[in-house]
């Protein structure tokens, strides 16, 4: 797909305006998974605004973001970095063959006590 089109789609899906970012880095200052991310929360906002989608599509951060909304909560400019991360993740998994969870492999991933809510979440977040 055309890169420009992809960037536009991601922006629309995220529902957030990256231009409002004043580059203060508070999202990254607050993120509990910062050290697990290759591309940091503030960089998601910056890269999407610059249109550099490839860095984001290939980022491991898509799978280490905890979806805890700390970045959304604290942004002084009303930008939602987590929404951008989610929108990029959707862009990845909506492509055929890009599902990240194979149902047949689930039994080996889980234990007795795991709540089924976690399984549903996992499929919703990583598969389409």
């Amino acid at each position: 797909m055309d890169k420009l089109e992809q960037v536009k789609l991601v922006k629309e899906r995220s529902g957030t305006d990256a231009r409002k970012c004043m580059k203060c880095g508070k999202c990254s200052g607050r993120c509990p998974a910062y050290n697990e991310m290759d591309v940091k929360p503030h960089q998601f906002v910056s890269y999407i605004e610059k249109g550099d989608i490839d860095k984001l599509l290939n980022s491991k951060s898509l799978y280490t973001c905890l979806s805890c909304f700390a970045c959304v909560e604290r942004c002084p400019r009303g930008v939602a970095p987590a929404n951008v991360i989610e929108a990029v993740r959707q862009e990845v998994i909506r492509v055929q063959g890009e599902n990240k969870i194979q149902a047949e492999k689930v039994p080996e991933m889980i234990d007795e006590t795991i709540p089924q809510q976690l399984l549903v979440s996992m499929f919703r977040k990583l598969n389409k």
């Binding site: 799978y63 280490t64 979806s67 795991i114 996992m122 977040k125």
Partner: peptide, 8 residues
């Protein structure tokens, strides 16, 4: 970090 407890 519960959301990633099975995958990570």
């Amino acid at each position: 970090g519960a959301y990633v407890s099975a995958t990570n």
